[in-house]
Structure formats: structure tokens, C-alpha cells
Design a protein around this nucleic acid. Sequence first.
RNA 1: GCCCCCAUCGUCUAGAGGCCUAGGACACCUCCCUUUCACGGAGGCGGCAGGGGUUCGAAUCCCCUUGGGGGUACCA
Length: 489
Amino acid sequence: MPQVRVRIAPSPTGSLHLGTARTALYNYLYAKHNNGKFVLRLEDTDEERSQEAYTQDIINHLKWLNLTWDEGPDIGGSYGPYCQTQKEEHYRKLANELVAQKKAYFCYATPEELTILKEEQLKSGKASRYDNRGRYVSEKEAQAYEASGRIPCIRLIVDEPRVITWDDLIKGTIAINSLDLGGDPILIKSSGMAVYNFAVVVDDIDMAITHVIRGEDHIHNTAKQILIYEALGKTYPEFAHSALIFDAEKQKLSKRKHGEFVHISKYASTGYLPEALFNYLAQMSWTPSNGQEIFSQTEAINDFDLNKVSKSPAIFDLTKLNWFNNHYLRQLDNETFKLKAMPYLDLLNLNSYDSNEIHEMLTLIKDGLNNLSEITQALSFFEPKPLDYEKLEFMEILNQDSASKILNLILNNIASFKNLDAKETKALIDSIGINNGFKKGKELYMPIRIALTARLHGPDLSRIFTILKTQQVQTRIKNALALNLQTKS
RNA sequence: GCCCCCAUCGUCUAGAGGCCUAGGACACCUCCCUUUCACGGAGGCGGCAGGGGUUCGAAUCCCCUUGGGGGUACCA
């Protein structure tokens, strides 16, 4: 058996899409599982929408996901070039050979003529398709078209009717009638550039691709492409079509509807770990044989099997991704976590704290995070500026008599808190509470929590207390008490 | 319209005719731990789209219906 060679072939018309990433992931896993090669190729035949910035984005984020390729436009390889725009001549040459062999022909129909054809078909309730009229144009007519300045495209002659069938590695047997392919397909646009379906086939042949793994939106393209392989006299590769990823309304994930959250870049910048996204994407239509939800890339490679990839579409669920991300975030050692947290920490003014204190803050919140960008909000109360207590829920608690009593007690004893660690701080708060008739619990701690953080919930209060230090604690309690007086008067 | 694909808890799935009283995970709910939140632990709720076959036996095989999705470009 020849070496397995698979490819991911994104078009640089947008930044790396979730769906493309998952297709890349399947290809990657399949290649690595079979000791094969994974190739990156850019399908940039769309002259109008392709952009260099997108190419960079795609390359960066595939790398970010640790889906590394063995050959590609950035690193080369012996089957290049790996961009379609660099192969224009080659495509044209092959198409012309097909014309010479009478397997293809020049078609002089104008877009306007085709639009009219389509409208007529629609009106009479027929399936809309090209009527293959160009097949029957005589030499003489062709010369007349040339003389009138028409520039032809090249179309492939399709046997009709005929059943095209292949054994899909994910879906099983698929059969499509050539009659339903919309008429003789274009190979070369009149601009001279190859059309997607032709370029793909030529490239997959040139690059000795053995397995084409892609989304099921390509199923009809596959039928057309098989016809092209046959015309070129080549055997076609194995095909595997995976179901698409949907949103909660069972619609295809689209930039238009979902904004930046269809792009891998968004997850990277929001502080999702590549391991988490990899794991989530992999498990959403494939389950390892041991049934585990959490698995590493290596484990996935060892166990991957196209046959076990789900035939039905999966709905993208951010909540579940969050669960995976939380898991991987908690697994990070403190140093790595700190390193990854830095960009989000930098958004806060925490210059007054030393690195031990920053470290302490991070361990405080590490376990409860969905993504790293939540750090900014989670730690914002550490910024040395006055807090805003003007919220009904806070006021209700602060206005209780017991609240001002407790806060005053802490204030009166503030000096005793100096240089205590978290455990000692807690013990002191407890004893102050007990000596003055408070049970330790919500009644005792909530007013302090609100005074120090202006929040109802958060991490361990005594640790917050020690990080803030007595000076800041004193200021905040005074502020909270002042507010209390204000509302009472 | 025409063609193709798909159908198990709200979501992701396990299931290859008897191991199924349909298993797991996320979410949700209850309880425990706990000053609160989170983490962790113990439970709970919840599903084979419908109808016909085939079979001793169907979530599983076949057919129909319904529903969902994709495609139908000189886009990729």
C-alpha cells in the first residue's frame, strides 16, 4: 500500500474557521495514525476574495492547534507548488489536452445567456442546469464567436445519464447520477484560471493524495471530481465526508451570524488553550475506543479511526468547550498558568503588588475559570481604587446593624491584622466575631466581602484580606461605612 | 423544484439483532464539603421522530412518512 498522504486545502478568503480546523484535525489524525504525510495547500483561485493576511492567519492558527504539516507553501516539499495561483499554466495545459482528446470543449456561452436559460428552467419547474449547448457548436460558429470577441471557458463532457458511486470512508456507499450535476462543468474560467473542482483534482493528483477527508458540503463536488479523474486517466483517491458543525439553531456556523466566534483566532485571543479546543473538536464527532472524554493529541492519534466518525452533524456547544478548557486550565502548573495569564493581567493596574502577591491572586481564581480572559474581571477588585457599592444587593447587607458593627470591629482591630497569613487572619476574624456574639458564617463574612470586593461571591476572603494588606482593607471598610452613614441620614 | 446526506436524553455521544430495565459526558436540580462562588464528592431529572415490515427476538436490518441539513456558480 502506498504511503498515506492527506491534505487540508483552505482558501484564504477568511481567517481559520472552526469547521476547517476540525477537517484539518481529522486529516492530521488520519495521517499520523497511518504514519503518513499531512499537506497544507492554499486554494487561492478566487482572485477577488483571497488575501495574504488570511493566509497568515490560517497558518498561525493551525500551528497554534498543533496541527503541523509535512509539506506546505511555507515550508515547501517535493510536490509543490502548494498554492494554486502558481499553477495556472499547468491547469490550462491539462485542460487543453482534454479538449484535444475531445473530452472537453470550448464553451462560448455568455453569463447573460446562461442566466436566461436558468430563468426559463425555473419558470417551467425544471431542475436548473447548463444544457450542454457548447458541445454542438460547429467549427464555423466557434470562429464567429472568436471574431466577435467572446472568450470561451473550457467544459468537461459528462456522460449522461450515468451513476457515479464511491465507498465513502465515513458515510458508506454514495451514488449520484451524472444527470444531477448541473450539466458539463467548467474546468477553466474564461479568465484563464482553473475552477475549484479542476484545480483540486489536478493538485490531488500532483501531490499524490491518497485520502480526501473533507466536509459533506463537498459530496456533489466529489461526483464531479471523479469524472475529472477519469477524463485525466487517473484513479481517484479514497473519499471521506464528515458531517458539518452547526449552531444551536442547526444552522451552519457562519461569520455573518456568529461573528468572530467562528474563527480559531477568537478562541486563541479569549484565552482558550489549544489542547482544550483540540480535545473538544476531536470528541464532538469521534469517540475513542475507551470512551474517554478527555484525551491528548497522542492518544487521539493512536486510536483514530475514520470509521468511527459520526455521520450526523454536531452542534457547537460553548458550555462544553468551557468545561474542557476549565479542565486543561486547572491542569496547568502555576508557572505556566502565570505565563499564559500575563496578557490578561496586564489589562489591570496591579503595579502596587509584588510578584508573590500576583501569584497568590492567580491561584485564588485558577479553578473557576472558563477562559483566561475572565482573569481581568475576576481580579479587578485588586486594583487600588475605590469600589462602587451602589447596588441594591450590597446596600441591603451593608445597611444591617450587624454589618456596621462587624466592619467597625475589624477597623478597630486593624493593627492586629498586620503581617498575618491567611489562616491567622481567618482565625482572628472568627474570634472577633465570636467574642462579640456573631456566629462565623454568612452574617460575619458577607459584609466584609462586600466592603473589600464589592461582590457577593469570590474566592477565599481571608486570602483576599492578606493580599490587599491592612492599609487597603482599612480604606475600603471606611468607604463602605461612610456609605452606610450616608444612606441612613 | 431537483439531487444527496442525516435522525438515540436539552447538547455531544456509546450502541455493528439477544449483553439494553438503553450506558457515559456537558448542562440542569438536590444533598455533602464550605463564610460566598468555584473545585471536589454522592444522588436525581431526561432519550431510541412516527408508522409498517423482516425475525423466536429490533435502538440496531428493509420500506414509507415526517423532520433537519447540504448541494444545485465562470465561489471555494
